[in-house]
Amino acid sequence: MANGQSNSNGVYLDFERPIIDIEKKIAELEEYSARRGIDFSNEINQLKGSLEGAMTEIFANLTSWQRVQMARHPHRPLTSHYLNLLIHDFLPIQGDRIFHEDGAIVCGFGKLEERKVMVIGHRKGRNPQENIKCQYGSAHPEGYRKAMRAMRMAEKFKLPILTFIDTPGAYPGIGAEERGIALAIAESIKLMSSLRVPIICTVIGEGGSGGAIGIGVGDVLLMLQNAYYSVILPEGCSAILWKDGGSNQEASEALKLTAKDVERFGICDEIVPEPIGGAHRDHKQTVQTLKDAIVRRLVELEDKPLDELLEARYEKLRSIGEFSESSK
């Protein structure tokens, strides 16, 4: 393994298989050579060469659907990893003060280097127990209402806001509808459009529709290289488009949901590169690259007078969309 923390329990995607196979061989040879004291460095170097070749080949040309799978990779760094590795002195804000503490969205004060910030992110779990608590990152209205509490507090104490987006969508359930999931998302979007503090949103994994944009409006939108952001999940899209159970592959292509696509639409401002092989192969490097991008953007935003910042935010949102307008 590249850093010993990925794929450690043997979970990998189909298209990662050639890499996993070569890595296994390298590990075996290394172990054998250490045990028997025989020098296999030539063979190992050769294998490492073919590993690099395989990695470049596979990851340079990922299809849209493969990127969706990368964004959902079981070892991909989650909001909790960014909270640990990017933020220090995290202090949680909990509860919407109305109904419930929603585990699917985490909020709190934290420090990014010496800067005080407000952090808001979707929370996914690594195992079934964790995922019961956080519903696989699918938030109820309470999650967005808690997020709004955190946002208002950030405004009050003049803290920039960092959001980490990683959700398959808002929770599809009776309770969510009863308690106004649509209203909670709409209010959150509306609030974020005018908050008087800098806001940087990052799609770190899945950008699932309304559930994502509910904490996705700000001055800058970053996307990790293999994150996706879509108006509807590819599975949902393919069910609508091809009633006989169409392909997620085709739906993913049609939706134009990769970071590159979203950047082309003027929605994503910057694509943050992932280590070769994906974010899951090196959490630390991923976090470091994102950290550099966030700090650089934050410095720019903090330099702007507030009114200018808000005007630029509004103009960016206003400019999104493509249509023709001729008086013919």
């Binding site: 709409a186 979007i189 509306k190 459009s193 005018s194 529709s209 309304g210 944009i213 996705g216 409006v217 952001y229 879509s230 108006v231 509807i232 899209c237 609508i240 939706l255 134009k256 949901l257 696509d261 979203v262 639409f265 929605i267 935010r313 509004y314 949102l317 206003r318 999104i320 969309g321 493509e322």
Partner: peptide, 18 residues
């Protein structure tokens, strides 16, 4: 949000709300 215009549709939510 109209699926056929993908993310451009999703961000009309932000545009109208703003």
């Amino acid at each position: 949000a109209r699926m056929d215009e993908g993310m451009l549709s999703l961000y009309q939510m932000a545009k109208t709300c703003a």
